[in-house]
Structure formats: C-alpha cells, structure tokens
Design a protein around this nucleic acid. Structure first.
Length: 460
DNA sequence: TTAGGGTTAG
C-alpha cells in the first residue's frame, strides 16, 4: 500500500516535472525533484529522462550526460528512452560519432533499441550527410523486426530530400498514400519543405493544395515553411503577409517564425522592422536558443554594430548556449564586411580549434573578402587549406581573378570547379570567357566551353 | 522522450 502510494506520488511528480520542463522552468523542476526526495518520493527513470531531455535541449549534450551521471549515482539505470534522448542530443550538436557510440553502448548494455532509437539515429546520419549509413540503419531495423512508424517514413522522406533525391522522395510519398501507410501533417510539411528547398515549387504548391483537401489542418510549421519558401523565391510581400497573419492572429507558438522574418528583413536592408520584431521575439517570453541569438547577432553585424554583436555572443555563452558554425560564419562575414580581415581569420582559427564539422561558409566569406580587396594570392592560399570547397568558393575566386586580369588562372579554377561537380554563377562564367577573349587566349576559351558542355552533359 | 518549420556566404 505504502509502495503503491509512493509510485503514484512519483507519477504525479513526473507530470509536474514534465510541465515545468515544457515551460522552460528548469530550475523549478530541479527544486521539485529535491523536495520530492526529501518527502520520500523517489524519482524514477521517467523523472530523470524528463530532466535529461530538458537539460540536453537547453544546454547541450554535456548537460544531458550530467543528468545521466546523477541518475546512476541515485541507483536508477538508464533505459531506451534515456539513450534515445542522448542520441537526439548528440544529433542536434552534430556529433554523429557520439550518437553512433551511444547506440552501440545501448546494445552492449542489453537495452533493445525501439523504433524511436532507430529513427533518431537515421535522422542523425541523414543530417550529417551519411545517407548510405542511414539506409543501413533502416535495413537493420527491418532485420531486427522493429516495425517502422510514421516517424520512420517521415525521416526517410526528409533524408531523401537532404541527400538530393527529391524525385525518389516524391515517389515514396505517393507510394505511402497508395499503400494506405500513415501520412499525416508532418509528412505534408516534410514534403512541402523538401520540394521548396530542391526548387520544385510547383510540386510544393500542389502538395499544399492537396493538404487543404485532407482532414489535416495546416499548422505553424506549415506556415513557417511556406513563409520561408516565399522569401527564398523572391515573394517577399507574400512571406511578410504570412508572418503578419500569424502574429495578428496570435498563432505564433515558438520563435521559428520570428527568426525567419527577421533574417529576411535584414537581407532586404529593412533594419527598423527587423529591430521591431527582434524586440517582440525577446519579449515573447520564450527562451532564446542559439538560432535566435545567431539571428540577433546577424542583425547587429549587418548594421555594422560589431561590439553589440560580440556582446550578444557573450550573453549567449554565459546563458549556457554554445556558439555554432552559424555564429562563426555570421561573425566572420560581419568582420570581413567591416574590413577586419585579420580578426575574421582569428575567428576561423577558433573554429578550427573547436573542430567544427562544417566551416565551409566561414571560409567562403574570408575567400570572398580577400578577393574583393584584391588579395587574390592570399585567397588561393586559403583555398588550399580548405578541406571542402563548393560553388561559392570558386565563384568568389574566379570573379576575384578576373577582376585583377588573371584570366588564365581564373579559367583553370573554373575548370577545376566543374570537374569537382560544382557549378558557378553565370556572371563568373561570362567574366572568364570575356576576359580570355579580350586577352587573346583562344585556346583557353575552347577549353572552358568544352568543360561547360561536359558539365551540362553530366548534370543529373 | 523522438521525427517536420527558424539562423551564415558568391
């Protein structure tokens, strides 16, 4: 009887913990836990899992591991949910190897992964650019007899889009519908987002119209997705109207729509409105996460207020949030635009020291800045240090070389770029060909044209 | 507890 009462109390405490964590009152949740222990209500694995998820989301994976240590010290063993949550935390921080290690640890501990565990690992592998490994996880899931659920299909659809297989994703979506497999609002949102991002706006609109004919109501995610799509494809007013409809109707459930609209306004140079919505975002009562800080730092950088930008960075880090590759890219770009190339280089060094997986954008900003200030040789030197180069890298360099009249070198890099499967802006191609012609390099013109034809033929 | 939407560069 006494034990049953204690279990019921623990269950009630867990409800309370979940509510506090959902509302972002982590400190209060922690004090409830302390009070409960004092009153003889022992926390169980659910209590710790709830706290672990909240800490992980608010402050990153290390905070999650700290809860894991605490629960072990209290004699409460982790379960599949604990590992799922930690794997999700690792995925959010881009720590793919850590996610894989956690999955292995779970298997070695004798805890059988459920569909959520498989889904989370698949999601992590897709997001970090390892689609083949993600498919292997899916195959392993089937082999172990773990039934796929709606999330599994949604993760696969999202992964197909992210790995550049939009047509396969579309075919899979139609297959799910025909086979009567679960297709819900998340599936529609995933499809609309994936189709928009892969440039298939017509298809995205068709799926959006189809959604209107189903029983599913579009939600804030749908609207944010559509809004982002409008901004991406030059329908600025339509995007802003979508935001205002959400705002005036009181339908903004979190900070995603704010980040989208502020960034779009900054890009348009409409700083006053960007500042107005930044204030609203701060006053909304939701806890700002790193994407929100990045957006605010972006606004300050583009306004040329670098001191304010760095102050925001300190606030962010003092609040327990980690800066990420977005933060660094925004700062490097801001510093470059204000002519502080050396300071930008220093930020890139910090990035290297932090061993960040993706630094290509930050490097590209510096390459571009060096090219624009006619330091093309320094840009070429930097290019050789880069592990990954993309269309942006080569476009900046090719433009930079043309600007200083080094057309032969520009054509060489243009051909390397095409050979590596990248594309360059039409303006860069034109600059190279016009330059080579004016300098009388007829043979190089022929080589460039042939490389461009080959690239078109090989284009998927 | 998990999955879909937000933040950077030519």
């Amino acid at each position: 009887m006494v034990r049953a009462r204690a279990q019921l109390s623990t269950r009630l405490m867990n409800v309370c913990l979940a509510a506090l964590c959902r509302g972002g009152s982590l400190a209060r949740a922690e004090s409830v836990l302390v009070d409960a222990i004092r009153l003889g209500m022992p926390p169980d694995v659910v209590s710790y899992n709830t706290l672990l998820a909240a800490h992980c989301r608010a402050s990153g994976l290390e905070a999650g591991f700290a809860v894991l240590r605490r629960m072990r010290e209290a004699g409460v063993g982790p379960d599949a949910v604990t590992y799922n949550t930690l794997i999700a935390g690792a995925a959010r921080s881009g720590l793919t190897v850590c996610a894989l290690d956690l999955f292995d640890e779970m298997l070695q501990t004798g805890i059988a992964p459920d569909s959520w565990g498989y889904n989370t690992l698949m999601h992590c592998l897709f997001r970090s650019g390892h689609p083949e490994d993600a498919y292997r996880v899916f195959a392993d899931m089937a082999e172990k007899g773990v039934a796929p659920c709606t999330t599994t299909y949604n993760t696969l659809l999202d992964g197909l889009f992210r790995s550049g297989h939009a047509s396969n994703a579309y075919r899979m979506f139609r297959y799910l519908q025909r086979a009567g497999l679960p297709v819900g609002i998340v599936t529609y949102n995933t499809m609309i987002n994936g189709l928009c991002r892969s440039g298939k706006v017509g298809y995205a609109r068709m799926v959006l119209r189809e959604l209107g004919r189903t029983a599913y109501a579009p939600n804030a995610v749908t609207y944010t997705t559509v809004m982002k799509c409008c901004f991406r494809y030059g329908r600025f007013d339509q995007g802003l109207d979508t935001f205002l409809t959400l705002l005036e109707g009181g339908y903004i459930p979190d900070l995603f729509p704010y980040c989208t609209v502020i960034s779009a306004l900054v890009k348009k140079g409409r700083m006053e409105e960007a500042n107005t919505y930044s204030q609203l975002m701060i006053q909304s009562g939701f806890r700002l996460d790193s994407a929100c800080y990045n957006t605010l730092i972006y606004l300050r950088c583009q306004e040329g207020k670098l001191d304010d930008a760095f102050e925001l960075l300190s606030m962010m880090e003092e609040g327990g949030l980690e800066s990420d590759e977005y933060t660094f890219s925004i700062l490097v770009n801001g510093l470059c635009k204000m002519g502080h190339v050396e300071a930008a280089q220093k930020q890139l060094c910090y990035m290297e020291m932090r061993d960040m997986e993706s630094n290509v954008v930050a490097y590209n900003c510096l390459v571009d800045a060096l090219c624009k200030s006619d330091q093309v040789d320094a840009a070429i030197k930097l290019l050789h240090d880069m592990k990954l180069k993309d269309d942006f890298t080569y476009t900046s360099l090719v433009h930079g070389l043309c600007k200083v009249g080094r057309y032969h070198m520009a054509s060489k890099f243009l051909r390397i770029c095409l050979r590596e499967g990248n594309s360059v802006l039409a303006s860069a191609k034109r600059a190279v060909i016009a330059g080579l012609r004016s300098a009388g390099f007829k043979n190089d013109v022929r080589k460039v044209r042939s490389a461009l034809r080959m690239a078109r033929l090989l284009k998927p």
